[in-house]
Amino acid sequence: MSQDNKKEIERCFHVLDKIINDNSIPKNIRRAAKNAKTEMQSDEDLTVRATNAITELNEVNEDPNIPVHARTEIWNAISILEGLTVDN
């Protein structure tokens, strides 16, 4: 794995951790962020991991009760993950 990919994964983890640790965000959305982070830590191919994490985040992104700041953070994480799928 390239050094750039490692940096992007760390950036993504930082964004996901912000979501996970924000108690103003509904539990189902925090759980999806945690699942996405766990998915990124698996041993599968990077593209597969990133795609699975994107899918997890997209599911909760459609929730009408999601706070605006949480939606923005999810978009940030998805953007980083999409960059990882393109680079591979």
Results as ranks from 00 to 15, higher is better:
residue 1 M to S: 12
residue 5 N to Y: 02
residue 8 E to D: 06
residue 8 E to Y: 03
residue 9 I to L: 11
residue 10 E to S: 15
residue 11 R to E: 14
residue 12 C to I: 02
residue 13 F to A: 01
residue 14 H to L: 12
residue 16 L to R: 02
residue 17 D to G: 10
residue 17 D to C: 08
residue 18 K to F: 00
residue 19 I to Q: 00
residue 21 N to C: 03
residue 22 D to K: 09
residue 23 N to C: 02
residue 24 S to Q: 11
residue 24 S to I: 04
residue 25 I to C: 03
residue 25 I to P: 00
residue 29 I to E: 08
residue 31 R to T: 13
residue 32 A to N: 07
residue 34 K to F: 10
residue 37 K to N: 13
residue 38 T to S: 05
residue 38 T to V: 11
residue 38 T to L: 14
residue 39 E to I: 15
residue 40 M to K: 01
residue 40 M to H: 07
residue 41 Q to N: 14
residue 42 S to H: 04
residue 44 E to T: 06
residue 44 E to F: 11
residue 46 L to P: 05
residue 46 L to G: 07
residue 47 T to D: 06
residue 47 T to P: 01
residue 48 V to A: 08
residue 50 A to H: 04
residue 52 N to P: 02
residue 53 A to Y: 00
residue 56 E to R: 07
residue 58 N to I: 04
residue 58 N to A: 11
residue 59 E to A: 13
residue 59 E to N: 14
residue 59 E to M: 10
residue 64 P to K: 05
residue 65 N to A: 10
residue 67 P to A: 14
residue 68 V to A: 09
residue 73 E to D: 10
residue 73 E to Y: 05
residue 73 E to F: 04
residue 75 W to E: 15
residue 75 W to A: 07
residue 75 W to M: 06
residue 77 A to G: 05
residue 78 I to Q: 04
residue 79 S to Q: 12
residue 79 S to T: 14
residue 81 L to A: 04
residue 83 G to D: 12
residue 84 L to V: 02
residue 84 L to E: 04
residue 85 T to S: 07
residue 87 D to M: 14
residue 87 D to W: 09
